[in-house]
């Protein structure tokens, strides 16, 4: 039996409703998935409003392409990929890769997961948002979404080596900020 998401709608109902252009189905789908997706958007954005822009753009894409979802795999995963791609597009539009050069290689002691756990997610989010767009995107894709360097290189049109080095720098900077926040 299909999982009932909310208001008696199953996932299948929602998809069919959205394909038919039904506003109630669209709204239910939005209400159900928007908190999760907004979390993703905020991680890729440098501030709250940019996150909202990505969210808006992503949902418009979801609704306008929902008939292309073939039911293979998780629907949430499909939506999530659209949002990540939208965030990447947003990053590509808003900046170029020269921004990476602004950060020098950090040289400091590592911080462990304990230090990270001491931070609230919101604080950590703020720290991630402070990263430059390129670092932030690569860090999110590798660390949180679990993309490989090869996949990241393909999506961002950069080399694998660049992806690795950018990730290392992003991680170093973030660790430094975490350490500073923890005192």
């Amino acid at each position: 039996m299909a999982e009932v998401l909310t208001l008696g709608f199953t996932q299948e109902d929602l998809i069919k409703g959205c394909i038919a252009g039904r506003r109630d189905a669209q709204e239910v789908l939005y209400r159900y998935y928007s908190p999760k997706m907004f979390g993703i958007c905020l991680r890729y954005a440098n501030n709250y409003h940019s996150g909202e822009d990505i969210l808006q753009e992503g949902f418009i894409k979801v609704f306008n392409n929902i008939d292309k979802f073939r039911g293979e795999g998780s629907f949430e995963g499909w939506i999530k990929r659209i949002f990540i791609n939208t965030a990447i597009e947003h990053y590509r539009k808003s900046t170029n890769h020269s921004g990476h050069a602004e950060l020098e290689k950090a040289n400091f002691k590592q911080v462990s997961e304990v230090a990270v756990e001491n931070l609230a997610t919101q604080d950590l989010l703020k720290l991630i948002q402070k990263l430059s767009p390129g670092y932030r995107t690569i860090f999110n894709m590798y660390v949180i979404e679990g993309y490989t360097h090869k996949e990241i290189a393909g999506k961002l049109d950069i080399s694998e080596g660049t992806s690795k080095s950018q990730l290392a720098r992003a991680r170093n900077i973030l660790q430094k900020m975490v350490k500073a926040t923890n005192g």
């Binding site: 908190p35 304990v114 990270v116 949180i144």
Partner: peptide, 13 residues
């Protein structure tokens, strides 16, 4: 640690 922190991270727009 970071992944765990964002595992169930949701923000209502």
């Amino acid at each position: 640690g970071v992944r765990r922190a964002f595992m169930r991270h949701e923000v209502s727009p």
